[in-house]
Write a protein that binds this DNA or RNA. Structure first.
Lengths: 332, 332
DNA sequence: GTGAAAGCGCTAACAG
DNA sequence: CTGTTAGCGCTTTCAC
């Protein structure tokens, strides 16, 4: 009720004593308008709080000023932080963000891509999504990938350097004397799981250890699953001296399982998590974990998609984010 | 590239040998069209995968088929689940969801409301948002409230029954012999915090205990804050026999702090969390907590906003969600 | 049951 | 630098 319902460009034009097209120029190409005229028009725009009707504008420009973010789920904290960064940066440039969750379901993702095309969304950010469903998108829509390499297709790419992360981590563990390393991955079939496994193996080899497949156990991404997977890991005689969890949430379960066997962390077995999720600092004992700047990544990703929308032809870039070890109390 | 770029209603009309208005009717009012014609038109629509241009349609109908969800943050898990429910239900009816986070910042929320009006969004779902910034919205936009009572303003309302939850919980604790109950609230200034405090006090009184203000300590919503707040609670001589945490995340810190003092959970002090966040089942020991069906709530909320969009005058409804105790191992 | 025509509000040539 | 004009693609009276 605060605002009069529909003030149009025509009315602003009349009041300012100019043609609608001049008002349009004031908004879209201010430099083309004489300063005096511009100021006058602007004052009416402000007084009446005029905003161009996005439908009419979109019909003409074929731009929606909407960017979509496609994530595999809403609950992974890291995505929430990325989303926050994206949202903030996008708003600055007058874009609106819509989020879609694919639930790691290929069919759903296909539907989402269709929807995105139908809505005439200007750009899409794919965060760790399925394979190339994105060709379901209308041709020419701006794209940015998070955690999936699109550089061959000329798509800007933001990658989390998992290989570097595991390199750092294994090196650190080896330096502490650990040789028998277990890994509770998370969902082995998921993209994130697959990448972690390969990075893990690579680092294990690099530091002269032997990859024991039995020490790599899968679990869906919940603590409970982490617990169960860890129990399996603990069944044999040959106990690992440290267990890496694919996420801190998983780590909760790992520690729980270890304790349930009457073993202590880190006295008997050390534990490392991933992502520095809230709570990990206050666990008992506080969990050593790996982290990166997801919020900052979100900002940069938003920056990239805006750039790409305005310059579809520009050469694509790849940016890598490194992870750092947050040392706390679960590694001995 | 999969799809030809722009197939319009005109082209479909030509191919089907009818007027554009007939195609429009097939889509929007199929019952007005002769069955034969309808089928023929429909077959072309499907073959060419025609979808009405949302700009043109919106310009005409003043509807965007977009619903906004305004949340105080992206990271609270309960919101993520609500969002998932909303998204799923909305997609079924061909609506798109946009999410905005206000960061509990009133200015930002005001800006968001403006933006929502500008975008001609059809409906807004406010999840535990600030005071009545919603009058910043354009008049007549459909509204639904989560966790804030709008019934006096004729707004559909979905409430989490915190009073009922605390009633249940305190009753349960009293039955187990607890008389000295501490409460690590979370942010005392936040809406959620305020409501929890008042529900807590009410229940305490009802069961004949005395409210000791010193036993109600604030904290921002992180585990670390929960830890610090708990340390304060544990400073006096008069230790509580049970501590309620405003969220499971907080609960992690509570348990950590208790342990850090050389005390055991639940041996020395019992702990109860809120929201049954993932991981709480696998904590050590598994955390007793309160839960409700946030995902289901999301679905119903979406249902309500769609109903409201299509029938702005209907009488408003209020639905209350109850919380249940998930008994695990932290209460003795 | 269907067609014709107008117009939603805006932007972008094209003149001047 | 500014006005004129056309038209984006759709829905909706109003006739027939």
């Amino acid at each position: 009720m605060t605002k009069k319902d529909t003030i149009t460009i025509l009315e602003i034009a009349k009041m300012s004593g100019v043609n609608p097209s001049t008002v349009s120029r004031v908004i879209n190409h201010p430099e083309m308008v004489n300063e005096k005229t511009r100021e006058r028009v602007l004052s009416f725009i402000n007084d009446y709080n005029y905003r161009p009707n996005p439908f009419a504008r979109g019909l003409q420009t074929k731009r929606s000023k909407i960017v979509a973010l496609v994530v595999p789920n809403f609950t992974t904290l890291s995505f929430a932080n990325i989303a926050r960064g994206i949202q903030e940066r996008l708003m600055q440039s007058d874009y609106t963000m819509v989020i879609f969750s694919s639930h790691e379901d290929e069919e759903l993702e296909k539907k989402i891509c269709k929807k995105i095309s139908e809505l005439h969304i200007d750009g899409v950010i794919f965060a760790s999504s399925m394979m190339p469903n994105y060709n379901e998108l209308s041709y020419g829509i701006a794209k940015v990938f998070i955690d999936r390499d699109g550089s061959r297709d000329g798509i800007d790419t933001f990658i989390l350097d998992l290989e570097g992360a595991f390199d750092k981590l294994i090196k650190y563990l080896v330096a502490k004397g650990h040789k028998n390393i277990g890994f509770v991955v998370g969902d082995k079939e998921s993209y994130a799981g697959l990448k972690k496994i390969s990075a893990f193996q690579k680092a294990i080899n690099k530091y002269g250890l032997i990859v024991d497949e039995k020490k790599i156990v899968g679990a869906l991404w919940s603590s409970k699953e982490g617990w169960n997977a860890t129990i399996k890991l603990l069944e044999g005689k040959d106990l690992p001296s440290v267990i890496i969890a694919g996420s801190d949430t998983l780590g909760i379960g790992v520690i729980g399982a270890i304790n349930s066997k009457g073993l202590l962390v880190p006295g008997d077995i050390s534990v490392v998590g991933f992502n520095n999720e809230p709570g990990s600092e206050s666990m008992n004992p506080p969990l050593t974990t790996m982290e990166y700047d997801d919020y900052g990544m979100g900002k940069e990703v938003a920056e990239a998609i805006i750039r790409r929308i305005n310059n579809p032809e520009g050469i694509s870039e790849t940016k890598t984010y490194t992870m750092d070890i947050i040392e706390r109390k679960t590694v001995r």
